[in-house]
Amino acid sequence: MNQTQQHLPRHIAIIMDGNGRWAEKRFMPRLFGHKAGVEALRSVISRCSKLGIEVLTLYAFSTENWNRPVDEVSGLMELLVQFLQKEIAELHGNGIKIRCIGDLSALPERARAEVKKAESLTADNDGLIVNIALNYGGRDELLKAAKGLAAEVSAGVLSEAQIDSEAFEKHLYTSGQPDPDLMIRTSGEQRISNFLLWQLAYAEFYFTEVLWPDFDDKELDKALEIYAKRHRRFGKL
């Protein structure tokens, strides 16, 4: 067993960036890039499953992405539906568990229905957990958690003195899951863009110039090799 296999992250979070630029470089519409990005998504999920990664969280659609052109947003929602319809049988067969995190109430009805079916079908699977962040914002998640705690205190279920990190984390979308050990962002951008603000506190960051449609299992292995060489101190010496 090599160093990479010995030091695999339990949880990988990915900001899948660069679909639009990938398409523009080919003089194609942005949606063409998003379609290509789905192929990369399939490859990375498969690789993580084979490696025995516990959790993979994918930033698919942020709360800010609604500001994009209407046709692009509609196209992204349709791609989500198509991905779940085409891939869910194989994902389920491989023991993968699909969870969607974020405020799903704002999604189109068709997308919500497919998400619900995928989550229901794979709910009892015990393999790789794939969190798909949809209409997700880190600040919104923190506000949601704070309101949840406030409601518990108001109802007398919890006292102010009992509020700690564990109580707070129970109100996060990722409750019960390990925090990300590794956060990957493609396309050369070096920021977290309102993604998992609480959970990424001690994650290792890996930034690559590779655009998301070109990020395959080999690129993932490169990130894992670098991660394996890092010494995580968690504030200690």
Rank of each mutant, 00 (worst) to 15 (best):
E166T: 14
G102F: 14
A89Y: 14
K147N: 14
T57R: 01
L128N: 04
N19M: 01
A161P: 03
D216T: 03
A151Q: 11
L128D: 07
A40H: 00
G75L: 04
M183Q: 10
S120D: 15
K218A: 14
L76D: 02
M77R: 02
F168A: 10
F234C: 03
E204P: 06
R139G: 10
S175D: 13
A23S: 07
E64M: 11
V55G: 01
A111I: 01
D214C: 01
N135Y: 07
A106M: 10
G18M: 00
N94W: 12
D217T: 11
C48D: 09
F32T: 07
F195A: 05
M1C: 08
Q177R: 07
L84R: 13
L196T: 06
M16H: 00
E169T: 14
P9L: 12
G75C: 06
N125H: 08
A13S: 06
E204T: 15
F83N: 05
H11C: 11
M1P: 09
L149I: 15
Y227Q: 03
N65I: 02
L172K: 01
P213Q: 00
D217K: 15
L107K: 09
H231R: 12
Q6V: 01
Y136N: 11
G127R: 12
G102K: 13
Q3N: 11
Q82H: 04
L158F: 13
I15K: 04
E72N: 06
V44G: 02
E209G: 13
I163S: 08
Q199V: 00
G52C: 07
V73Y: 07
E189T: 08
L8C: 15
L58D: 05
Y202V: 02
E204Y: 12
